[in-house]
């Protein structure tokens, strides 16, 4: 692992990502499209990229409904989208 990298867990899976990027970027780069399931259970991902639409909400370090586009990745961060079972 490069010192410019950090390791986060996405739905229980360890992923190494570039330091300083947003959680939203980390998930998209990891190939994830669905960040949350809407109230009628349809898939949703980031829309605005700037904290307005709340479509990128997911659980970060046990706090629900955080906006992935506004949060920077940190080492050891746990992200849970509820889309895949936790391991």
């Amino acid at each position: 692992m490069n010192t410019a990298d950090v390791t986060i867990t996405i739905d229980g899976r360890a992923v190494t990502v570039v330091r300083g990027i947003s959680v939203a970027a980390a998930l998209i780069n990891d190939g994830m499209h669905t960040f949350r399931s809407s109230v009628t259970a349809t898939s949703r991902g980031p829309l605005c990229g700037m904290g307005v639409c709340y479509e990128c909400r997911l659980e970060i370090d046990e706090v629900a409904h955080r906006r992935a586009c506004l949060v920077t990745v940190t080492d050891g961060q746990r992200i849970n989208t509820g889309q895949r079972p936790r391991q």
Binding site: A24, A25, I28, H33, L47, C48, G49, M50, C53, C69
Partner: peptide
Amino acid sequence: RFLPFPGWTLPGVIGVGAGQALLKAGTS
């Protein structure tokens, strides 16, 4: 300003400025 059209809630449909914002935040 987002305007609804059929299919606009699909993941992968984002804003215009959003493309730039996500890019700057490290999205590839």
